[in-house]
Design a binder for these strands. Structure first.
Length: 694
DNA sequence: GAGTTTGAAACT
DNA sequence: CAGTTTCAAACTC
């Protein structure tokens, strides 16, 4: 992105831009009457002066112009769109065109703080008066499309598409399509750039805003999606209307993907589905690495063009997308590839709550672009929507209808999965969220809005502090951030002498030290992790329903029962019943094998809002903010070794709390059952990074 | 929501 | 390494 050329606005260029698709887009946006006002600068300034640091710490400043444009466009769109709707269809009269031009300028004036003397009327100043919420809103809205957050405004890229000489609906080869898409993106990008020229944005002025640069800079990586990376297909070439945009962009951002991964990002194309981070600049699909998609677990960009989607599907889709906006969170975890940069801290409701990570079918679909044969089943299992349009004859794999339907499922699964990971929050009061007490910190996540912590330092703006603290903790205990629940390689006897294929093969690495909870409550890390206690545990009166440690057999259980009977029997029984129920539910849930193979780490407690049947949607409404993960490339270098089977190693000291002699197993096999639990998987690289023990 | 319980983490 | 303190989640009311 080049340096802005702020003095290049000439009548000629204006004329040229008036012919540009973006210009037409703006032209068509609103009949808002132009006016002059001087009141909004303050509004915007107040926005600009919002401290963005907690939201957008990314140093990727060079894209901020793009970000800003997108943000502005959002607001403009939101407002103008409503007016558009009020006024009905608008014509393309020259009068309105001029209005649009003026409006554009006006908008520019307000947002860009360019002309403080300017005044305006007709545009409610509340466009800019979104208080601090806007700061949260920015990344989200910018994530989606050029339109309003409600998705009822036709994205500009679609407009571009419409004005494009390309013949929609024409059959083209994949190569042609790639090329065309790339060109399209180029055009889109250039158009936006041109528009910015028109609007006279000055970089220096932008940068001058209090923290505005920081805001937009962090949004930058998101934005490029809107302008450049949005892939669109309009196979019928028709205007699909503004109210129900047929193109929905899902963007779940885990920014700051390590550079060494940047070129390694997936590009998945499959008909109407695009799951891509970046596309080869030549417009060619990047080498198929879709298998790694789920390893990163997040759809960096999922752009779905569902021109053929049924309206209700679209609505569902849009609604869902709104819920899922911008689950962004930086990860404090440092593993390099193949980790995906985010330690998903939880995987609750994986199956029982209807949430499930993308399954094999989904993967297959991503990879092949074909609706898998079992898609029907997928639909039936995971969606209330009719499976009638999915599955069935094999020939129908490529039918747009089925693909689109499957896309819905895919996205839902994907984001439900992501959502699960995002719903983590802490309530730290004194630790500044810089100790392992803090679940967020321990999980390698920055604290986010829903956290109730005080004096929180676990935020991107304190990145250095966080990293420093983390180093400190790791120096004290290299395993401090390692997964606590481990599972040995399939078929290999684990340290507890069990074959790893048994559900009980997963164990808490360090073991618990429960005294009073009988390992039947989530105080117990073993129980919380959904694993049985092991000889490593120093627990007393273990009743862990996932497996008692040696020595705590049935007789002990009975003893406990007797002991319990001495207490308030009825209360105890009812309580145990509750526990048993929960436990049973707990045990029923299992992480699908696909997930277990993901080369990333789950950490922390995933309980949070998913507990006890918390509604995921409500959860998301609260968490609809910046989910962020710290860049992995900041991780300290860890020697890589071959993946070794777990070597039995018990704590030499039954009382030792800290992990002193780490032993690892292949994370690729790390699978354990859990819902609402601490799920701490180890990325394969890291998991094998420590030397084996004799 | 406030208070209590619990056990991990941190500290000495 | 052991004992103690701190801490925040889990739990109860």
């Amino acid at each position: 992105m080049g340096t802005p050329e702020k003095t290049q606005i000439t009548p000629t260029s204006l004329s040229k831009f008036e012919d540009s698709p973006v210009f037409k887009y703006i032209d068509s946006l609103s009949p808002i009457e132009l006016g002059k006002s001087s009141q909004t600068n303050n509004d915007f300034n107040s926005l600009a002066c919002l401290s963005p640091s907690s939201l957008f710490p990314s140093p990727q400043i060079n894209c901020h112009r793009e970000s800003r444009f997108s943000v502005e466009r959002h607001h403009l769109s939101a407002d103008s769109n409503s007016r558009v709707l009020q006024n009905g269809n608008q014509s393309n009269t020259s009068e309105e065109a001029s209005k649009a031009v003026e409006q554009s300028d006006l908008y520019n004036e307000h947002l860009g703080c360019l002309d403080k003397d300017s005044s305006f009327k007709g545009i409610s100043c509340n466009i800019f008066d979104e208080k601090s919420d806007l700061a949260i809103e920015l990344p989200r809205t910018s994530n989606y499309n050029c339109g309003s957050p409600d998705g009822n405004l036709e994205p500009c890229y679609k407009l571009l598409k419409k004005t494009s000489p390309e013949v929609a609906g024409q059959e083209r080869s994949p190569f042609q399509r790639n090329r065309d898409e790339w060109q399209e993106r180029q055009r889109s990008f250039e158009s936006e750039r041109d528009l910015r020229k028109i609007r006279g944005i000055k970089l220096s002025e932008e940068s001058a805003g209090c923290g505005w640069v920081a805001i937009v800079s962090d949004v930058a990586d998101i934005l490029t999606v809107n302008s450049a990376n949005v892939i669109h297909e309009n196979t019928d070439g028709q205007d699909l209307g503004m109210e129900d945009s047929d193109t929905t962009s899902f963007i779940s951002n885990i920014p700051q993907i390590p550079l060494d991964n940047a070129n390694n990002l997936e590009n998945v194309e499959s008909g109407d589905l695009r799951v891509s981070r970046e596309q080869n600049e030549l417009g060619e699909p990047v080498t198929d690495q879709t298998s790694g998609i789920l390893s990163r677990c997040l759809v960096d960009k999922l752009v779905v063009s569902d021109s053929g989607l049924k309206n209700d599907d679209k609505m569902k889709f849009n609604q869902f997308s709104r819920q899922q906006r911008s689950i962004r969170r930086r990860c404090l975890v440092f593993e390099k590839s193949p980790g995906f940069g985010l330690h998903l801290t939880s995987l609750p409701n994986i199956s029982k709550g209807g949430q499930s990570p993308p399954n094999k079918s989904t993967l297959s679909f991503i990879k092949t672009g074909k609706v898998p044969c079992d898609s029907g089943a997928v639909v039936a299992e995971n969606s209330s929507e009719t499976p009638a349009t999915v599955g069935g004859d094999d020939a129908g794999h490529s039918t747009p209808e089925k693909k689109r339907h499957f896309i819905l499922i895919l996205c839902r699964q994907k984001f439900e999965f992501i959502e699960s990971a995002s719903c983590k929050r802490c309530n730290c009061k004194r630790s500044k969220c810089l100790k392992l007490y803090c679940d967020c910190f321990a999980a390698g996540l920055y604290c986010i809005e829903p956290c109730s912590c005080l004096d929180c330092f676990n935020k991107p703006i304190h990145e250095n502090v966080v990293l420093e603290t983390r180093k400190q903790i790791e120096s004290r205990n290299p395993q401090a951030f390692a997964p606590k629940v481990v599972r040995s390689t399939d078929g290999v006897l684990d340290s507890w002498g069990e074959t790893s294929n048994t559900p009980a093969s997963a164990r808490h690495k360090r073991g618990c030290n429960c005294k009073r909870s009988s390992c039947l409550k989530k105080y117990c890390e073993c129980f919380q992790g959904g694993v049985g206690c092991s000889p490593s545990c120093r627990c007393e009166g273990c009743k862990n329903s996932f497996g008692r440690k040696d020595g705590c057999d049935e007789s002990e259980h009975n003893e406990d029962g007797l002991e319990a009977s001495e207490q308030n029997a009825s209360d105890k029984n009812s309580h145990d019943n509750v526990i048993d129920k929960k436990t049973e539910e707990h045990r029923e849930l299992s992480v699908p094998s696909d997930i277990s193979r993901l080369p990333f780490a789950y950490r922390g407690k995933l309980t949070g809002s998913f507990q006890h049947g918390s509604d995921s949607s409500s959860c998301m409404s609260k968490f609809d903010s910046n989910l962020q993960a710290i860049p992995e490339n900041k991780t300290p270098e860890v020697p890589k070794h071959k993946c070794l089977p777990l070597v039995p190693k018990l704590n030499s000291s039954p009382n030792s709390k800290r992990v002193s002699s780490p032993h690892r197993e292949c994370a690729s096999t790390a699978a354990h059952r859990s819902r609402k639990l601490k799920l701490k998987f180890v990325p394969s690289i890291r998991s094998s990074s420590l030397p084996s023990e004799p």
